[in-house]
Amino acid sequence: MTALRKFISFVDQINYRIGRVTMYGIFVMMAILLWSSISKTFFNPSLWTLEMAQFAMVAYYILGGPYSIQMGSNVRMDLLYGGWSTRRKAAVDCVTVLFLIFYLAILLWGGIDSTAYSFKYGGERSPTAWRPYLWPIKVIMCIGITLMLLQAISELFKDILRLRGEEIDNVV
């Protein structure tokens, strides 16, 4: 069981730190969009702002995803769930989190394939006039999805420990 605990603490710590940094991404997006309106009003509009803001948004929600799980922000339908005991919740979650893990694994599979493509043929570029290479954002997405997968596994381990009657203290 100490192995499970080690895994949980390792993954949760990493995701917590990444999430704490990522949350300031809101100001990055804001700055890009403000620069976009300033450059449009006072000089020639910048080519890169909209796409850059989109990259920032994707990095924001994908890298921030695991931290949002830790915070419990991801809504669940609690028509039945809400009324269950902690133990019962843990037991059901142990099974249903496998569905979540499966979804994330397929998401990652497509992500890795698409990222591999972005390195082929001299590097995939966005079909825009700015033509940024797409591998950086795709790599970030793959890392984020992997971290999300690890966080989901960590949640599974926590439920296993709960079922064994052990106490779990959250990082958040």
Binding site: N44, S126, P127, T128, A129, R131
Partner: peptide
Amino acid sequence: GKRVFTFPTAGRFLAQFGVVPVT
């Protein structure tokens, strides 16, 4: 300074006339 939706290559070409291509 016109922000214009156009094809990538056309956008590259038109940029020299101050067009800002947006995809």
